[in-house]
Design a protein around this nucleic acid. Sequence first.
DNA 1: GAGCGACGCAATGTATGCGTTGTCAAGTCG
DNA 2: CGACTTGACAACGCATACATTGCGTCGCTC
Lengths: 239, 239
Amino acid sequence: MLPLMLKKAGALNGMQGQISKELSNSQRALKELRNLIFSGELPAGSDHLESELAERLGMSRTPVREAALTLESQGLLQLRPRKGVRILPVSADDMREIYDVLTALESLAAERAAQSGYSEDDLAPLAKTIADMSDAINSEDLKVWAEADEAFHRELVRLGKNTRVIAIFEMLSDQVRRARATTLFARPLPTKSNEDHLAVFEAILAGDAEAAKTRHCAHRKHAKTVLVDLLEKLGLSRV
Amino acid sequence: MLPLMLKKAGALNGMQGQISKELSNSQRALKELRNLIFSGELPAGSDHLESELAERLGMSRTPVREAALTLESQGLLQLRPRKGVRILPVSADDMREIYDVLTALESLAAERAAQSGYSEDDLAPLAKTIADMSDAINSEDLKVWAEADEAFHRELVRLGKNTRVIAIFEMLSDQVRRARATTLFARPLPTKSNEDHLAVFEAILAGDAEAAKTRHCAHRKHAKTVLVDLLEKLGLSRV
DNA sequence: GAGCGACGCAATGTATGCGTTGTCAAGTCG
DNA sequence: CGACTTGACAACGCATACATTGCGTCGCTC
C-alpha cells in the first residue's frame, strides 16, 4: 500500500471543488462514520472491526480509532474489546430518555431566549423555519417538514445562548434523527405542531419567558408520546 | 526506556493489593489526568505537551492522546494543534451555563423520582445524605458538608433513572467541583440548603412530582446565584 | 463419544517512527 | 527603524510494528 502520497491526490481534487476545506483524517473519519451510521450502511446492532472501517475510509486504524472513541463518548457506538465496534441501537426507552432531556433543555432555551429581549430581526431565522414548515405542510412534503422542524428546534436552542445546552442538543439530535427517519412516513402530517412553534415564537418576541417555556415544554412532551408510541407499535431497536 | 515489561510489575503489585483491577493504560491516563486537573497540579489555563504528559504518566503518547480526546469532548481541556493541551478555565459565565443545565436536569430527575413510587427503603441512601449533611452542619465541617451535598444530588439524579441525565450530570459535576473547591471556604455554611433537600425528599416519598420538581428547581437556582456571585467577587477563571 | 486442555490466530492496545506543518526568530530589505 | 520573508526546529497527525490477550478449534484422554 502506498498511502503516504495518496493524500496529495485528495489535495488535487480539492483544488477544483473546494478551496477552503482541508480536513484532517480523524475529522473525516468522524464525519464519514456518522454518515455511514445515519445512512444505515452501518446498521444498528452490527459489529465492525477497526481495521475494516479503516480500509473502508482509506486510512489507518489510528484516526478511525480516535473517531470511534469520540462517537463512543456520544453514545452512538460502543468499543468492545475483541468484538469490534458495535453500532448502538436506539430503543423506545432510549427515546423516552432522550426526549425528556431535550424537553428540559429546550424549554430552558426558550425561557432564556424570551428573557434576552430579541428584536424581530434577531428572530428572523426562527420565523423562517415556521414559514418553511407551513409551506411544507401545504405541499405535504414530509422531508421538508422534518428539516424545518429540526431547524426550528436548533435555532431555538441557539437563541438560548448556552453553549452546553447547544452541545448536548447536537449530540442527542443525532440519535433522534435516526429514529425519526423510520417513523416519519408512518404517521399523519402533524399540522398542529407548527401552531406550537408559532406560539413559542410569539412568546419569545413578547418577552414572556414563562409562556415560552411552558408552551414549548408541552410541545415536546406531546412529540415524545407520539414518537414513542409509534416506535413501540413498529417494534423497537431501529437504526 | 523499557516500558515493554514494566507492565508486569503492575500485575505483580496487583497480586498483593487487589485482584480484580487490571486497568488499561488509556483508562489510567483518563483517571490520572482528571486527578491532576482537580488537584490543581495542571492549573486552569496552563498548556502541556502530549509527550510531556505521557512521560509524566509513564506511558506513550497514544493512550494519553486518547484520554485527552475524551476529556476534550467533556469540555475539561482543549487540544490545540501545536500549543499542547490547554486546561480550560471555568469562568462565572461557564458556571451560569452549567448550573442552568444542572437545574433543568436535576429537576427532571426529581420529578421522575417522585413518579416512580419509591419506598422508604429505596430512598434510604438519599435520606442518609441528608443526615450526613445535618451532622456536618452541626460539627461545622465544610468538607463533609460538600461531600454530602454532592452525594445528595448524585443520588437524586440516580433515582431519576435516566442514563443520559446521569451521564451529563457526571460530566458537569466534574467542572462544578473545581469551582466549588475555591469558593467553599469563602461563604457561610448554608444551613438552609438541607431544608430544601429534606423537602425534596419528602415530596419524592409522597409521590408529589410537581412539588419535588419546583422545590428542587428553586434550590438549584438559589445555589447558582450564590456561587456565581461569589465567583465574580473573587475574580473568575478559577481552577 | 464427550469433555477438557492446549495451541494458534486474530484483533486490540500501545509504542514508535516519520512526514507535515505551524511557530518562532533572525536577517534583510524598504 | 520597522516590517516582511525565509529558514530551522519541534510538536503533532498518522502509519506501522509489535506484544498481549481472548476466543475458537483441534486433538487427546477418559
